[in-house]
Design a protein around this nucleic acid. Structure first.
Ligand SMILES: [Mn+2]
Ligand SMILES: [Mn+2]
Ligand SMILES: [Zn+2]
Ligand SMILES: [Zn+2]
Lengths: 133, 133
DNA sequence: ATGTGCATGGGAACCATTCTCACTTGCGGT
DNA sequence: ACCGCAAGTGAGAATGGTTCCCATGCACAT
């Protein structure tokens, strides 16, 4: 019931080549530049489906936009993301997992989920940024 | 240069009485019900200013809406929030602070900020929820 | 090759938030 | 108390990311 279409193939190929977090609109533009023709609505739909299936990770930047990325790890993890270029480091954070579970239980909450993301400026962007100014 | 207006007084009073995270629209409605007349745009502006001054904390729920709350602690902290009723527990998380700082430095990132929020269903809402269904 | 129903895409709709701008008002100065 | 004016307000328009609609396209089982 899940069909392989030209559009989905193009998105999949793009995600394989990209290891920074990107917005749906950025992905759409990248597809256009690569010569593929894929509707914006289709990009949104595709990313949503991939996210639901756990095939991509989603996070929201400070502006509230959703950013997507195909991660190496399939299991739950967190990220350190460059707010300038999207460069991403995948993180294990057993400490954070324990903390979240303990705190939730201690206060009688159930179905506890957590978000924990780090945003910074990567070394390369920091170097580039110090040139001007 | 910061003037005390009827509207800001009303918002301040409301925030003092509320200790759950609330959206600007919810606050606007609560003001209306309390008999105050405050424009929605003013609520947004006021919350934005309060947030910039660190007088309220802001976080985004799963739907991407901004939620506001006047916290007891003035210093940096995190939250455990009921996704149904907004009930909130303020959290110290020295472990998370250390983790964030270490990880950022280890990967050469600078100006590292972090988000870490827990969302769950509070005991009361869990009890209420189990009645129906 | 054909049929069926999932997939696509362009534009409209949605919705939280911000902007605009004419009007109001707090408040320092007199 | 009275002025003057910059800060504040609010109703509606604009914004912008995302979702919805629906006529058309196309993957794929038979
Ligand atoms: Mn985790
Ligand atoms: Mn922290
Ligand atoms: Zn970078
Ligand atoms: Zn609750």
């Amino acid at each position: 019931m899940q069909r392989m279409t030209r559009q989905r193939a193009a998105v999949g190929e793009l995600l394989a080549d990209t290891d920074d977090f990107r917005s749906a609109q950025q992905l759409h533009e990248m597809l256009r530049e690569a010569g593929h023709s894929v509707g914006l609505a289709t990009v949104y739909r595709t990313m949503q489906t991939l996210a639901e299936n756990g095939d991509v990770d989603v996070l929201r930047n400070a502006e509230g936009e959703s950013l997507y990325r195909r991660c190496r790890k399939q299991v739950h993890h967190h990220h350190l993301v460059c707010r300038d270029c999207g460069r991403t480091v995948e993180l294990d954070a057993a400490i954070v997992e324990h903390w979240a579970a303990e705190v939730g239980q201690a206060h009688g909450f159930v179905d506890v989920e957590h978000t924990a993301e780090l945003f910074g400026t990567c070394a390369q962007c920091a170097r580039r940024g110090s040139h001007d100014a």
